[in-house]
Design a binder for these strands. Structure first.
Lengths: 207, 207
DNA sequence: TAGATTGTTAATCGATTAACAATC
DNA sequence: TAGATTGTTAATCGATTAACAATC
């Protein structure tokens, strides 16, 4: 079974392939993709073999075919619809992040408890949190982004679960626990910065 | 040597300890921290031993002491000063993210090439990119957050390196390559969402 | 065909876990 | 003291890398 690191590499290969496509490359070797993704060629071939992706001995891989297969694995062939909860600092930025639309990720609506944030006219609209469950069910949405304060995150997760959400990307600085049937991907900005700080200090001290 | 996963666990232990402190806990066992961080007790003790952190056989660890030692390792005993480049969607959100100040992370200034973004009066101020090198050197800052568009990221990294920056947290959707003497931590929001999407689909199909 | 690259198996590496003697 | 928990060593597990036969 593929693990998190493997899928992240697949995303990198996919991004590299998209650049090659714009350069009109027809074929690519595992060596090329390895360089682009910063891994070994053996790793690339191993990853592909895990998904039954085959190339041509001697001729490498066809860029188009390979890109199609990776896109399929990563769910890029259909638009992925999200809801976003918590239209604060980070939430608002994500709501209007142009990089998402470019890559087939669409935020259908934002939700908040603060009436000041409501804006039915904007795109995406910002709606009252009470409408979340109904909205999610009507639109058959299974993915959510959480950007509420830490103290509210666990409660919001409860709402999302009972609305039928299956995957959550969490930006609240608290490690949300995922019950069975729901995947949570926690991104803790403070933790990431602490990590950076540690390794900067560690290398400065010559370790 | 500690790896990235190990330091992330240390941040989790630290966060758990801070909560225990507010609850007036005096002592804590490796079992407790393991539960809080979602790892095994052996892992906790192994991590501590890597940093020469010792407790009391039978009595566990003193919450205060342990928190102090972890804070020191993670650089929490002094204010960490950052500059931020690219005051767009994401950059502006990070510039005013209250969670950073609460955890000893201070963004001294934002920088942009677009004069519309300049604002010397705001806190943090937004300054012209030309002033970056001088500002960084004068204030002796070694850490930066990059939130510029992908096509500008590599060039901005060059500026940062020549200004003496030693650690970069990169939000541009491109994998920045770190030369020796500089650490780069890439956070690719699109890749993280693709990861989530993959595992939601994978578990739905019963794997 | 000869040469080069894949696909896969086996070897290596590193991280996590289990186990248990030391000891508070 | 007896019991419980640490600190560390050895065993396990999984992921990465190396190697090479298959083959285009």
């Amino acid at each position: 079974m593929a693990n998190r690191s493997c899928i992240i590499r697949l995303s990198r290969y996919k991004n590299a392939l998209n650049r090659l496509k714009t350069l009109n490359f027809i074929r690519v070797f595992s060596d090329n993709l390895a360089d682009a993704a910063g891994v070994t060629a053996a790793q690339v071939r191993k990853d592909f073999s895990l998904f039954g992706i085959t190339g041509n001995r001697r001729g490498g891989y066809k860029v188009d075919d390979l890109a199609d297969q990776l896109n399929k694995i990563l769910g890029k062939e259909q638009l992925q619809e999200f809801v976003l909860i918590g239209v604060g600092n980070i939430g608002r930025a994500l709501l209007h992040y142009p990089g998402f639309e470019r890559s087939g990720i669409h935020i259908a609506a934002g939700f908040d408890i603060d009436p000041v944030k409501y804006d039915v006219e904007s795109e995406p609209p910002v709606l009252p949190l009470e409408q979340l469950a109904e909205f999610v069910k009507r639109r058959d949405i299974t993915l959510a982004i959480v950007a509420v304060p830490d103290y509210a995150a666990q409660q919001v997760l409860g709402l999302l679960l009972s609305a039928g959400i299956k995957g959550v990307m969490n930006f609240a600085p608290i490690c949300l626990k995922a019950p069975d049937g729901c995947i949570v991907n926690n991104i803790n900005l403070e933790t990431e910065l602490e990590n950076l700080i540690y390794f900067v200090n560690a290398t400065e001290n010559g370790n």
